[in-house]
Design a binder for these strands. Structure first.
Lengths: 167, 167
DNA sequence: GAACTGATCGGGGGGATTATTT
DNA sequence: CCAAATAATCCCCCCGATCAGT
């Protein structure tokens, strides 16, 4: 369990969304945020099935993700989730990833711009990183797969992400 | 400030939605939940002011709206809100609105297409209506203002919408 | 000629396709 | 010289300012 601080008003709003007596904050929030119970709660009642990467399952099914119809938006969202999942591992994966000339990820726009002729760097929201964006879909997928793999994320999870990638 | 307990997984998910460094939990949650800061807290400190059109205030400050950077997206969102606020009044306002040749709103794409040479009709999400989209920003504003006015919505509210229109 | 309305066309983003390198 | 991998040109489409027409 984690503890977060929120303002009084927001607290009242959330409390007001209680569906049954004794419902806990996580349950209410999950309902409001439209994310599934792929984690703890489910394990309690169903066959215990390990879910090592709840964060990605949540993202993949969230409206934040599915509402985005362009490849580039989903690409950024995914990279952001990967960073937040484990900044240290992400950093390692990020620095070691590049093409023959272009740097794919960096902490500043400039080094991406200068590593190629038209890399079109994009900021990765909520992250100190930037990515190249002037690539086709196949390469964007490769970048995601490559990072996930370097971060030690399971093949199964990588496949799920891959499948969810196309709109 | 209030403290709530949430499970680890949910915590990670929320943290992953951070938009800028140092953003606090309340801010992230408000964005995700689409609620603005204009509720109780504010009313407590300011003069209590009646809000006749909560629907619009909510929309204007929601992330759904502010995340949309293009005029056309905001335009559609607003029209959708107007329809849902009062379908009957919207219907009246919609049918009476047009230019010298073009029909601005209709229940079918075709009648908009045939009323001009390149009207580029767009569906109004969650609504049986379509709008013309091949117009400049000024005209889009005019369409919104005109409909709101016809629906009997206050000048004050119209001004608020107008102000929130540009990204 | 002033004001209003229509719709052409330029700008920019996205990413498939093509050019280039390995 | 061919195949695979990588870069980046360039086309398409969306948006909406600007200009043409009423």
């Amino acid at each position: 369990m984690k503890t977060i601080e929120i303002d009084e008003e927001l607290y009242q709003f959330i409390a007001g969304q209680t569906k049954h007596i004794g419902e806990d904050a996580s349950s209410i929030l999950r309902r409001l945020l439209n994310i599934n119970q792929s984690g703890l709660a489910k394990q309690r009642t169903s066959v215990k099935k390990e879910n090592h990467y709840p964060l990605f399952n949540d993202l993949l099914t969230s409206s934040t993700f599915t509402n985005e119809k362009s490849i580039i938006s989903r690409f950024i969202l995914l990279l952001s989730a990967l960073y937040n999942y484990n900044p240290a591992l992400f950093a390692i994966a990020a620095t070691s990833l590049h093409g023959s000339k272009r740097q794919y990820l960096a902490k500043d726009k400039l080094s991406l711009e200068t590593s190629g002729k038209n890399t079109k760097p994009r900021e990765i929201t909520g992250t100190p990183y930037w990515v190249i964006s002037n690539t086709n879909t196949a390469r964007k997928m490769y970048i995601i797969e490559s990072i996930m793999s370097d971060m030690g994320i399971s093949e199964t999870m990588i496949n799920q992400v891959t499948n969810a990638f196309l709109p």
